[in-house]
Amino acid sequence: MGFFEKLKNGLKKTRAEITDKIDKILVSMGKIDEELFEELEEVLISADLGVETTMEIVEELRRKVKENKVTQAVDVKELLKDQLANILGDEKGELSFSTTPSVIVVVGVNGVGKTTSIGKISYLLKQMGKKVVIAAGDTFRAAAIEQVEVWANRAGVDIIKHSEGADPSAVIFDAIQAAKSRKADVLICDTAGRLHTKKNLMEELKKIYRVIKRELPEADMETLLVLDATTGQNAVTQAKVFSEAAAVTGLVLTKLDGTAKGGIVIAIKSELNVPVKLVGVGEQLDDLQWFDSKEFIEALF
């Protein structure tokens, strides 16, 4: 199955939710009136785009409808599609790996799927012919190290670990040395889940960065914030606060195979300009895909 089908499969519920509703509204309306905009507003909000982003989108839609003298409700759909595409941009998800090693740090709040995503990213990169080393940096949660170890074995990549309760920066330090000596292409650092409101945990994250910057000053670095597609408006705050501590370069949107719509990424892109790089659409090792905004929207409609 290619990306398109997989995403489409994963998004089937999403699409059904959003577009069926939109289609129903558009067909039943026929004409464009205030009620139509209000209904569209509701549809976008129910996809977790958030009030502010939704208002902006609908406002712009109103302007465009007027400007283009659109009279039929069905044509509004194309306009809306264009507009979402505008916000998401036409960038494709990709990571930069020009240095050896390059570093990926994976961060996020508790329970979003960081460790699972790391397993899948490792597999993805290995398929691309990269040599990967994982640093088991979640030394806090019970059995987190064992969990990432299982994923490392499944993906067939190396893992550097300490015992539970160890200083995560020390783990990262050792993993950097290992990545250097083993000539790994990519070092992927797992971190403990932390709520962005916990100040000392965010400081701990900064310390990890200081270690990486000191040991690998020239390395390409990606910081991926993992977001659960079911998350609501709090995801925007998460993205904001994690960006302050860790210069987030992209998002991994997980659990898109449920009924959640993940519309919050549109709000995040619109407010913070952080792009989605990867999407998780299932529980299998290969159920992580490069994000493609064009196909994402195409699959949505």
Binding site: S46, G111, D228, A229, T230, G232, A260, I264
Partner: peptide
Amino acid sequence: VDSMTGQDAVNV
């Protein structure tokens, strides 16, 4: 239920 859940909480 994760308290951060968005609109999908009702479906779940």
